[in-house]
């Protein structure tokens, strides 16, 4: 990359694209684990109960909060893109993207308060 290659990228929408990509990857990594746990429910109730006890640990709850954030930010950011690409153009996309990020953080925070 040339001198200051990142400098021109420092704008909200570039970060929105980055967050969207990373949150998508994060969710893709999580999904198989999620299905694995679901499989436990069908195959081995005792191990599932063990997993639930493990999942009650605060550190795991913190991880779940992160997942809620990833899910919310990917969902809201995705909706924004769908609106941009399928309906008449609206300005202020940087503000909308920031709002999506803020709302996702709020949702994750509410989740954290409820589970702790």
């Amino acid at each position: 990359m040339s001198v200051g290659a990142l400098s021109r990228r420092r704008n909200a929408l570039w970060y929105a694209a980055l967050v969207h990509r990373l949150s998508g990857l994060g969710l893709a990594v999580f999904l198989p684990l999620h299905f694995l746990t679901l499989a436990l429910a069908v195959e081995d109730g005792a191990r599932l109960d063990g997993f639930f006890r493990f999942a009650d640990m605060p550190a795991v709850k913190l991880g779940e909060t992160g997942l809620v954030f990833l899910l919310a930010v990917h969902f809201l950011g995705g909706l924004r893109i769908l609106f941009v690409e399928n309906f008449t153009w609206r300005g202020n996309q940087a503000k909308l993207a920031s709002a999506a990020g803020g709302l996702a953080m709020l949702l994750a925070f509410v989740f954290l308060i409820r589970v702790l």
Binding site: R9, N11, L13, W14, I81, V84
Partner: peptide
């Protein structure tokens, strides 16, 4: 196109 809007920005 990923709708990054870098084109519009610049």
């Amino acid at each position: 196109c990923h709708s990054h809007q870098s084109c519009q920005e610049h």
